[in-house]
Design a protein around this nucleic acid. Structure first.
Lengths: 136, 136
DNA sequence: CTTCAACCTTGTGCTATAGTAGGTTTATCG
DNA sequence: CGATAAACCTACTATAGCACAAGGTTGAAG
């Protein structure tokens, strides 16, 4: 629940790719070195992003990853949702968790409201918002 | 990070006490039965609330717990902060975590913003907001 | 002086997180 | 063609936090 290293690393990888800007393929080991993150661990993270089409992968020599859209077309929430199992602040709201007492629960509306606030914040910002001004 | 059963149970206990309304001491085992939660586990939770003065405890026969303020004087965030180790959405923001790269981290402002939004939401609502209309 | 309730300490099973390790496939370059 | 470089895939592991459970101790009322 909420944001672990997986989501944070995913964001940093995407940001790293966005900083590159050249549209060429960037190999993962160079990203790992720059960001100071275990390459093997990053692998398991970027696979999610690749399968979902947020980045395009190219194998073999000269291969790597690159963005498939412009930075301003990546809502932060989308990146996090793919790499975290859930962004819900409480387990009650997680998928496949329909609580039998949901109808009468006096606290459920509170959590739903919190979830909405978080969702709006994360979907209302994009990768581009995290780039340094000169890279805009 | 974020809200586990500890915080959720704490809220339900406080709500249970607020529902009582009579100002008399309510024993924990009756709360546990009503809420369907393990009494022993609740014990470890309510101790935090008691030590912080959110509830007053009375030992011995006829003892139990009662609120020390009116429901509208308990911000939800205060209850959760006491029972959860942290409400921060990422570890970066947890106490005693001053990251050496904080200055140059491009994602830190994002997390700080998210933290503020959550904080405002949770501190802007009180126990009273969760009571059914007729109990107001 | 018994009863009931809070208080305190300790232990335990489970699950998720944050990685490691090692091998397989695929593309490029000399 | 073959070496190299990269993504891809499977499986394993150590650690920590969560959600309790068990048992005994202290203290207030009747």
């Amino acid at each position: 629940m909420m944001i672990s290293t997986r989501g944070r690393y995913a964001l940093r990888v995407m940001l790293d790719l966005a900083m590159d800007g050249t549209g060429t393929y960037v190999p993962l080991d160079s990203i790992a070195r720059r960001e100071g993150i275990s390459e093997k661990y990053l692998e398991s993270i970027i696979v999610c992003l690749s399968r979902a089409g947020l980045v395009k992968a190219l194998r073999g020599k000269g291969g790597g990853y690159r963005l498939t859209r412009k930075p301003e077309e990546y809502p932060i929430g989308e990146i996090l949702r793919l790499t975290e199992k859930s962004l819900a602040p409480v387990t009650c709201l997680e998928e496949g968790m329909d609580c039998p007492q949901a109808e009468s629960c006096p606290t459920l509306p509170l959590w739903q409201g919190l979830d909405r606030v978080i969702e709006e914040y994360l979907m209302g910002r994009t990768l581009a918002d995290l780039l340094p001004p000169e890279k805009q």
